[in-house]
Amino acid sequence: MTGPMITNGDPVGAADEPRRSVLLAGLAGAGATGLFLVVMLLSIHSSVAGAAERLKNPAIKEDSKVAIADHAELPYCTPQFKKVLERVLHSCGLGDSSGRRGCKPTDVKTFAEINDDDFNALFRPLKDRGAVILFKTGKYELEEGAKRLVEDRFRDRRGARYFFIVARASKVGNVDRNRALSQQRANSVMFHIKDITRDDPELEKQVGMLWLGAEYAQFSTEYCAWITSSPDEKCTEQAINQSALVSWVDCRL
């Protein structure tokens, strides 16, 4: 059987040729597979180990500047406004737990350290935000229109931190009577707010009360242009000072 093959040359080499080819192919395949495997595993290890290293030693991040939820602050919160605001807060019982509530004229004069006109000027930017609650001469009770306006203004918080009640009396009457009257007017507004909020304990930290009597920072008729609780009545200098200015103040401290 093998005779003819012997005479035809190298029978062993010819018979082994296919086997050698397959063996070579097997080695090539195994080599390629091994190469793919090593590269792949090194790549995986490198990616994961890199992430682990970054996790352990994070690069210093640039300030991401994510805002923190806070109360509203509008451009009228000038440093001077804030200075007075801060004094009011500390002097009129909002900034601590002293239990004291409100500031009387002499207090305001002392802590504000600014003259009447400058004090009033601070509130001008609140023209569209606030309102002037008007009272009859010698009276401190809120009329129905006044109650609605207080409620409307108090409900329109828009993220503000503080609500101010700045009550006054006109120059009719004596100093003591006007001090008491302006305080009663401020209280009337405060009581109404307590009513509509069902005595929300947060009010103590929100509402600042000042009563100025007729001694300090009297309004000029410029303030008649504000929204008032009696828009149909004639606005005189006397009328505009028988009042309580109410407004949220969009300032942070």
Partner: peptide, 8 residues
């Protein structure tokens, strides 16, 4: 890897 084997 197996395709390399088949190719060769």
């Amino acid at each position: 890897g197996f395709a390399v084997y088949l190719l060769v």
